[in-house]
Write a protein that binds this DNA or RNA. Structure first.
Lengths: 190, 190
DNA sequence: ACCGAGGTGGACCTTAAGTCAACCCGCGGG
DNA sequence: CCCGCGGGTTGACTTAAGGTCCACCTCGGT
């Protein structure tokens, strides 16, 4: 399927909003990326916020798929190895050159009130990721899969934000130590 | 010391920027809070960003003091108890009615590029807090105080962001389990 | 032959940041 | 005593950005 204009708008939006923050980016920058006029833009989206929501939704889909794929790829078949691979995924995310924090967290921060659509979208993504981790934790025979998943996800969030705010390259090692500890604690008694 | 106009500007700024996000708040809202004119404002600050930086700096001072005071108050004299009290402090922060995430993280998210002043300020605050925790960890006889501090701080960040984004009231318990685990692991051999 | 999707240009409105000019008032020091 | 200065006022103004509107173009499918 050929990339539609709408698609290209969303892609540019993800890129720019992620790098510079939603309110820092003028709609006209995105328009000039894509090469259409303002009027044309408003035939695709109601408003700027609509574009952002579409961008978050797209990113949400993409991230869930990527997350699952990477865990299988790096963790192999054994569920317990997949569990450890969660931190491999985190590493590959936060050590990427273009890492500027988790885009969903960024969105939730720029729209701090819980009822705002961007905030809701961020929350939905976090839940989806936690569900994925919980499923793996269950297969790995954790004593309390949901608890383990919530713990690992809290570590993930901590790693994202710490790496982003402080820039400390040791962050991934800190996160790994915590993850190892909690996995061991939850998966000892088969 | 009587509260100067500048002081009142900063206080209103902290309040509004924190609740609604920096770019969501018009300078005129703050002016009407304080009850002065735009011209008067620009005799105190160069620009809106200046005001935000002053607000972050003030919050930074305040938070460090509060953090130290609360740890002593809740943790008592024994360093090992003070270490556990870190999560008490986190609880009191994230369960406050006006909690909308860590203001420094919010700032860093709204200005994602590492060199931006707000981002630098946020980073400085995180370092300061970690130093405080590291000092307590050392007194508590942790095998590697800096490592323990960085681990606890990553849990803190995770708790802030998880509670803020998802609104999950269980967050503090998840964080406490992790903290207990890591403190035990690092403070066993006296 | 025509309709609708997707495109153009350009005028226009509003909000918000920031500037500027002209003026007022109270107070501390030469 | 009055001059200057810190802090305040009003109101007009500029610029940038989001968003609207209108008239018009062009291409592909029924």
């Amino acid at each position: 399927m050929k990339t539609t204009t709408r698609q290209r708008l969303v892609e540019s939006a993800i890129h720019r909003f992620y790098r510079d923050g939603f309110r820092n980016v003028g709609i006209e920058q995105i328009l000039s990326d894509v090469g259409i006029s303002k009027t044309a833009f408003y035939k695709h989206f109601e408003c700027k916020e609509d574009l952002m929501l579409a961008a978050l939704e797209m990113q949400n889909q993409w991230l869930q798929e990527t997350f699952r794929a990477m865990i299988r790829q790096r963790g192999g078949e054994a569920p317990i190895d997949q569990l450890s691979a969660v931190m491999d995924v985190v590493e590959s995310i936060i050590e990427s050159d273009e890492f500027h924090g988790c885009i969903f967290v960024n969105a939730a921060m720029e729209f701090p009130l819980p009822h705002e659509p961007a905030h809701v979208s961020a929350s939905a993504n976090k839940r989806a990721i936690e569900d994925i981790v919980a499923a793996i934790a269950a297969e790995a025979g954790a004593d309390d899969p949901r608890a383990l998943a919530s713990e690992l996800c809290l570590i993930m969030e901590g790693a994202y934000v710490t790496r982003h705010v402080t820039g400390n390259p040791q962050t991934i090692n800190i996160a790994r130590r915590l993850a190892t500890l909690v996995i061991a604690a939850r998966c000892s008694g088969s």
